[in-house]
Amino acid sequence: MSNRYLIADREYELSASIPLSSTQKKLDATLVELAKQGDKIAFRELYQQHHQRVYALCFRLAGQKELAEEATQDTFVRVWQKLPQFKGESQFTTWLHSLTVNQALNCINKHKRFWDRFLPEQLDADSAASVIDYDGLDKLIIRLPERARIIFVLYALEGYQHDEIAKRLNIAPGTSKAQYHRAKKLLQEMI
C-alpha cells in the first residue's frame, strides 16, 4: 500500500508519502533550534510548514472540524512547551507525528467525557455525519463509529501496526484487528 509510509526504523513521518528532502530537513532543524530559544517567528514558520498535515491527521481521528481545529491548536501549543525536550534524535516530523496522535486522542477523550454527561451517543454520531464538505475517503470515514474510525485511520492511513495501536488505546491487539475489519466492512458497504 503506497500511502503507508512505515520507514525503515519503524517510525512515522508527518510528511507526504515521499521522503522528506534534505532541504526540508535542514529547514526544520534550523527552525526548531530557533524556536527552542523562544523565537516565535521561527515557530510560526514551523506551524506554516506542518499545520495542514497535523490538521488532516487530527480531522481524520476526530471525525469533525471543530474538534480537529482544537486538537491542532493543542498540538502546536504542546510542541512549543515540549520543544526544549526535543533532542533531535529522531526527525522533527517523526516527533511531531507522535505528539499529534497523542494530543488528538486526548482531545477526543476529553470531549467524550464531557459530552457523555449530556448527550446520548446517537446525537454525537449525527453531528459528525452532518459534515458534508469533504470528498473521497474523508466523506466516508467521518461516518464510522469513533473507535473503528480511529483504528482505521491509524492502521490504514498512518501505517501503525495493531500491537502499537493497542498500546496507544489501551486495548487488546485482537480488538484493534476486529475494529479495523469492522471499519473496512462498513466503508465497503458505504461505497
Binding site: 500511502n3 510528511s15 507526504a16 516565535k40 506551524y47 488532516a56 472540524k65 491548536q73 473521497g136 492511513l157
Partner: peptide, 23 residues
C-alpha cells in the same frame, strides 16, 4: 480511496491567532 486520500488538509479558519495567544 486510501491511496488517493490527500496527506494534507487546510483548516477552514486560521488557527494560528489562538495558538499565538496561548503561547
Amino acid at each position: 480511496l486510501i491511496d488517493d486520500a490527500p496527506k494534507e488538509m487546510t483548516p477552514a479558519e486560521d488557527l494560528w491567532p489562538e495558538i499565538a495567544r496561548r503561547l
